[in-house]
Each structure stands twice: as C-alpha cells, then as structure tokens.
Write a protein that binds this DNA or RNA. Structure first.
Lengths: 352, 352
DNA sequence: CTGTTAGCGCCTTCAC
DNA sequence: GTGAAGGCGCTAACAG
C-alpha cells in the first residue's frame, strides 16, 4: 500500500439533493400522485392527455420511482437470488450469464449467493431470503435452504418460488432444470468402449454430490451396455478440480495395470490428469485416452484437445430463469426440463 | 401455500399469512416499537431488562426486520453494486470472491452488474444505481457511469461512493485499487531480456483498454532498461481471450523472422498461443519462450507450465471492498492502493 | 432510558 | 378517468 491520500469521507453524507418524488411529478403535470402512478403501471387507464403531461414531467425531472417504497407497498422486490457453490468456477459463471440475461429482460435483478463451501453462509442467504429481499431463488447447490443443518427455523419461513438448476433436489416440489447426467456419462463410456477400450478408469466427483451419483450410474450403465464388467478398482476419487486431476494422474502413473482410457467427470480434472501423464512420459491418446465432461473454454486448447461432453450452460441458465419468472408471474411452470448434451470428439481419445 | 382453511382458533404461529412485524415483537415484549428498534440497532441505549425481553420476543416470533421499510426510512440499502465487463472470465470471478467476503463481513450484500459487452446494460445499471438501490459501487470496467455514451443525464444523479478496481479511471476522484501494470510488464520484459532474448514479441490487449496502455508502456520500459530497441512489428494485437492467443500463434508461425520470446498480456492468450505453436511443431520453450500475465489456475497445468505475473486477485477484491466500506461509513479512505505482483517462474520461458 | 409521533415514497382502494 | 386518503414497516426526532 502506498500513497494513502485522504479523501474527504463525506461521500455518504453528501449534500445530495433529495431525489424527485412522485409528488414532484404530480405537481408539475398538474395531476394527482395516483395518476402518475397509473400512467406508469397501467397507462391504458389514464387519458392520453394526462399521460402525455405525466411523461413529459417525468422526462423533465428525471424521476425514478423509489424501489424501497415500491417494495414496501407492493411486496415485490424484482430481485432474484442465485445460490451457487463456487463462483470462481468457470462452469458456473457461464451459467450465470444465461440466468442474468433472462432475468434482465424480464426486469429482474440478480443477487449472487456464493457459498464458497461455508455452511454458515447458506444460513445467511436463507435469512436474506426469509427477510423478503428477493422474490424468488435459483438453487445450484443441490439442496433446499436449511436442508443441511440448523437452518430449519428459517427455511420454514421461505415460501417464495424456487427453482433447482443442474443439481437436482430429490423430493423437492419445484422446477428442476438439468442435463441427463446419467445418459451423458453412459454415452461417453460407450464411446470409449466402442473404440476398443476394455479397461476404463473413472475419475469421480465428490461422493456426496448428486451429479456424481448420476454420472457414476451412467458410467456403469455404459459399461454394462458395452458388455464390460464394472471393477471398483477403476474408480479414482476426485472433486472436479484441476488438483484432483493431477492426483488421479499420479495414481494412474503409479499403477502396474494401467487403464487404456480414463473418463474424468470434469474437464478441469481431465486437463490436470493429462498434464501429469505427460510429465510422466505417457502420451495421450497414444498410450492412454482421456475424456472430460463440460466442454469448458480450455478444452479446445488442451494438448491434445479434449474429447468431452458439452453442456449447454447458457441455455441451462436461461431455462432456469424462465421457469422462475413463470412462477413469479403466476404462470404454470415446467416441472422438469432436461437439456440435451453433446458428445464432442476431439483428439484426446483414440481407438485402442 | 398457506393453510388458511384450518379453524384452529388458537391462532397458532403456523398460519402466518403476514410476516412478524416490529409491532408484534413490541406487544409481546411489552415495550414500544421504538425500543425494539433500538434494542437491535443500539443495544447499549436500552436497559438490560428491556433488551432481554425484546430478544426473547424476537426469538419466539422469529422476527426479521423488513428491509424495504428499513431502507425507505433510513435511506440505506446495505447493498453494493459491482460492475464488471465479463462475469464468465475466471480472472474476475476470483476477484469477486474477495469483494464478496469483505462486504459480507461488514453486513453488505453484493449485486453483480455484468456488462457482457453491451453498453445498454451499463445504462441499466446506472439507472439502477441512480434509483438508490445500492449504497455504493465498485467499478471494474474502467470508466464511470455514463462516461461512454448517452448516460450523462442519469450519471449526474449518481452521488453514492464509488471505487475503481483493476482498471483505473483517470481523473476520477475516487479510490483506485490496482496493481502496477506498467512495472509488472517491465519486469517480465526484463526477465526475458536477462535470459538473452533480443527479439521479443508482445501480444496486446484491446487498444482502448487502460490496462493495455499501462502494460504496453511497461513493455517498452523493459526493453529500454535492457538496452533493446522497440520495434512496432513485434506487437501483435489481441484481446485477452484464448482465441486471440491462437490467432497470435498463427501470426508467429507464419513469420520468417520469428521472435525468440513472446510476452502475452494474459494467460488465456499465452495458453492459446502455446497450443498453436505446438500444433505447428514449434517447441516451447526450446524453440520459443512464452510468458503470460495473471497466473490463472490453468497456468500451472499448461504444457509447459506457464511463466507469468501473479496478481493478488482475492486481495484486490478485499482492498476495494474495504475502501468502499470506509467511504460508506464516513471514514477516510485510501485514495490509491497498489498491490504487489509476483513474477512466477515456471517452464515456458528458457534462456536463449 | 422509554414512549409518542411523524413521516420515508409509493400504490391502491374507495369515492366521485 | 381522476383525486383523496390510508397504510406498507420501520426509525429518527422529540418529549418526558
């Protein structure tokens, strides 16, 4: 730190002229405040002349309705909370794009609740929600508020619309937007098998994660569909991070009986793993094939470029936001949406 | 849905159509609403007995203050807007972490304004801010509201505290938190020169970007300090993306007189570039050295691992949030903070 | 230390 | 089609 100049801290107590209120506009347009309000909310119920005068007055004053007053009165915040496990993960940030743009178009703002692995934060966001600061929430963290621990008291008060995204929430009676993880994992497994691989390792996500459970089922489905036995020794524990991929790579390098193909349930792990194999002198895909999951931006510039499953991340976000907006506006909403994934074939997987 | 149909005359708490208000708590604790309010905001100004009764009543009712009412009355939202150019960029999301955790500790929530390259969105966030929905804002986009186009009317109304982060805003009288881009770029350039490289290419950011201008100056500083001439032909235009790196790579591969080292002003570009060189049969660092900037997570698993400049992203976010909170709470705030960067030496750069 | 009172700015009946 | 008036829930100002 250098150069601690002093700024006059009066920023907060600035000599701010009080913002224009609906009254000012009413006076200027020579109508009542009720008419101003109606001219904005239900223009068709106001005479064209009055409306014109109101709009002119608004333009002249630069009037912007006070959201706090509006919320207090109407009980609507036009804000949505998005709860997610890890904001720093590129997978989520692309999804946020889709959510944000859809909410934005519908006039809603987005507040991000980054869990960052701390349960106490979840309680915070639950309280936040219970306090009525948002009209609805999109949950990317795989469970409802308070379902983890200690939040029961508060979560009982949360009656606003919710939508689950990516990680489905079993038993929750809310719209669930996701991909078919099981089918996608099965497809990749069969792809590897179809190229002659009989010994396929699987680098998992966190055991407690529902995505992991689905993808793992898919892996077993794929083996079965290809007439291959499932052998527990070929499951290598991971957690979707680059570092987990590096560790899995070390594990494989150290084995006597190496698999001929490795299916990583995230691209991060695949990239970390390939790196470790490379350092150990193993060539991908010549010595060993590697597949990923997600199709992040770096997949295409990995060396070799990564064969993976593409998730429509932006569309997932859009679909979740749409479903929530439906709910918010009293429309029926789809109960479950499954978006299609795509098998992206690049250079990290080769025939045996 | 609320179970209003039950005829449970006792009025049990389960059937609450409306949230608990301060009045309910006051009645239960047998004090006035003002005392309840004070027990929460300034406990030391309430007698221990009254405070205890209030807290008990709050616990019993599960009372949570209505934020809209509070904001309407106190003119404070306890919300901060963070404006950033690209949410999907991993560089920013790590910074957000630092911002969020610091705001969170101080009791502030974070609203994200993702520009995503569209100017009309900036106008939206300006209006959002002007409407008083946030107490302050952190700007990562390199200019003030309305400084781009058409937003003058609204931006004039924005009188809340602002802080600039990463991309400094010349002439703005607000706290500026950043790294010394020029010095960092100079340092990397001198590092390359010190290893014997005389022909060093520079892959730039977007020309209009202030980071780019600073880093470019640093590049020239570094050349000068090393006694090397600056030759315009060695500047390759980029925009910090992977794709720009790929394009720059093609450019270099096609040259007859290839540089012996390339300084990319983002890790994304360095990774894209290395990939292209590799595909063309050029070996890094044996045939050509490559350096990056940022030290993103993938830098360490790039092949070869990337020599780069580490930015303290989390700390940058924390510092910006702290400065803003100072302003928000009427304290003096540092005018300019420059955090230290670090030259991270890995395998993508070798002596000539 | 505590209570009473008066709005913060808006929307929405209700009356005309 | 329009206006008057009340109140959403809270806190600041002012008495006591």
């Amino acid at each position: 730190m250098d150069d601690i100049g002093h700024k006059d801290g009066s920023g907060s107590e600035a000599i701010s002229v009080r913002a224009t209120r609906i009254q000012d506009v009413a006076k200027l347009a020579d109508v009542s405040t009720a008419t101003v309000s109606r001219a904005l909310a239900t223009p068709e119920r106001v005479s064209p002349e009055a409306r014109a005068r109101v709009l002119e007055a608004i333009a002249k004053t630069g009037y912007v309705p006070n959201p706090a007053a509006r919320t207090l009165r109407s009980q609507k915040t036009y804000m949505v909370l998005v709860v997610l496990p890890d904001l720093a993960n590129t997978f989520f940030s692309k999804i946020l794009r889709g959510i944000e743009e859809t909410l934005f178009e519908a006039g809603y703002g987005m507040i991000i609740g980054d869990l960052d692995g701390s349960p106490e934060k979840e309680a915070h966001f639950a309280a936040f929600t219970a306090a009525g600061r948002v009209d609805g929430a999109i949950l990317l963290n795989g469970h409802l508020f308070g379902q983890s621990r200690g939040g029961e008291g508060i979560s009982a008060r949360i009656t606003i619309p919710l939508v689950a995204l990516c990680e489905s929430i079993p038993g929750a009676d809310i719209p669930q937007i996701e991909i078919d993880n099981r089918a996608a994992a099965s497809r990749m497994t069969q792809h590897l098998a179809s190229l002659g691989h009989r010994s396929i390792a699987y680098v998992s996500g966190p055991a407690s994660n529902i995505l992991e459970r689905e993808r793992f089922q898919g892996f077993k489905d794929g083996l079965a569909a290809s007439g291959l036995p499932f052998e527990p020794v070929q499951v290598i524990p991971g957690d979707y991070t680059i570092e987990a991929g590096v560790r899995a790579g070390r594990d494989i390098v150290a084995r006597r009986d190496r698999p001929t193909a490795v299916f990583c349930t995230s691209d991060e792990m695949a990239i970390g793993l390939m790196r470790t194999l490379f350092s150990a002198g193993l060539r991908v895909p010549d010595d060993i094939s590697v597949a990923g999951f997600d199709d992040i931006d770096f997949a295409v510039v990995a060396e070799p470029s990564l064969t993976t499953i593409r998730q429509p991340r932006r569309e997932l976000g859009q679909a979740a936001a749409s479903a929530l907006i439906d709910l918010l506006q009293g429309r029926p909403s789809p109960k479950r949406i499954r978006l299609e994934t795509e098998l992206v074939i690049r250079d990290s997987v080769a025939p045996l």
